[in-house]
Amino acid sequence: MSRPLLETVDLKTHYGGTRSLLSKPKPLVRAVDGVSLKIQPGEVLGLVGESGCGKSTIAKTLLGLERETEGAILLDGFDVGGRDPAEARKVRSDIQYVHQDPGAALDPWWRVGDTLHETLKIHGVSDRAERQARILEMLNAVGLNEGFLRRYPHELSGGQQRRIGLARTLSLRPRMVILDEPTSGLDLSVQATVLKLMLDLRATYDLTYLFISHDLSVVERLCDRVAIMYLGRIVEIGSADQVFSAPAHPYTRALLESAPTLTRQDSGQVIQGDPPSPTRRPEGCAFHPRCPMAQADCRQSVPQLAEVSDSQSVACPYAMPGQVRPAEAFAS
């Protein structure tokens, strides 16, 4: 395999837990707790998990908006970790971010065109003509015309806002783009065109995507590899085919079983309980209180990711790799 574009080694981002003189002590939140990822150039890696699992914190940490507590971040093999936000953004300008709600990510008082110009200005493109050229190129690439530059954010539809968000980020010519829930809040009929656009852009501009989502069906269609997160740790990672057809971790299986399909799912165990809060993380395997196959030692030791096949690793000693996807078993 070639050298990964981005690599994290045992990345940890914790909040709070410190006592200061003036403020109340805040509980320690281990939002990201030991994540090691390798993202190859050109691939689409999906990062899936429920709310509070730390997927947004990973994005912020990779961008440099949050400083990691421990661990290393390597971009192209160079260590780019351990920096303050301002410096980290400079060093990691190859990594850019498309916001979950690109409409809200635009200043409501600014015309779209001004915002696009500003984004380039921030990155030191001082020549107005060059900025305009780049913006028009990107607008064209996302399927919008020049007229949109004069509009205000509230004059755009949900799909148009996503396109502007993509144009804004891609005008910076990043190599890697973190897409945070890029389809949430979009209607199914609009979602498709946005997803297609993202795949086209990836091909045109040779991009690498980290695709954060809770929507399994979208991840399944778009991603080459997928990582499943639960309470700050990756519990399963592998090629999308493998993970979706033969989920090994009980949590992955629960997620897949819970996604509503077009046939009524009467059989099958629905996983009980809610994801616990990261401030009250269970000892041992964080999933054990909800796990149907938890054993005594799951309460004590934290399972590590281990390969179960050449393209799939699971953090569960009782994982059953190669099992047929439950929904399909039911459908047949």
């Binding site: 429920e50 997620l255 996604a259 629905v270």
Partner: peptide
């Protein structure tokens, strides 16, 4: 709601 919670509520 999250996916796993959604299915519980639907049932």
């Amino acid at each position: 709601l999250d996916v796993t919670t959604q299915m519980q509520i639907l049932r």
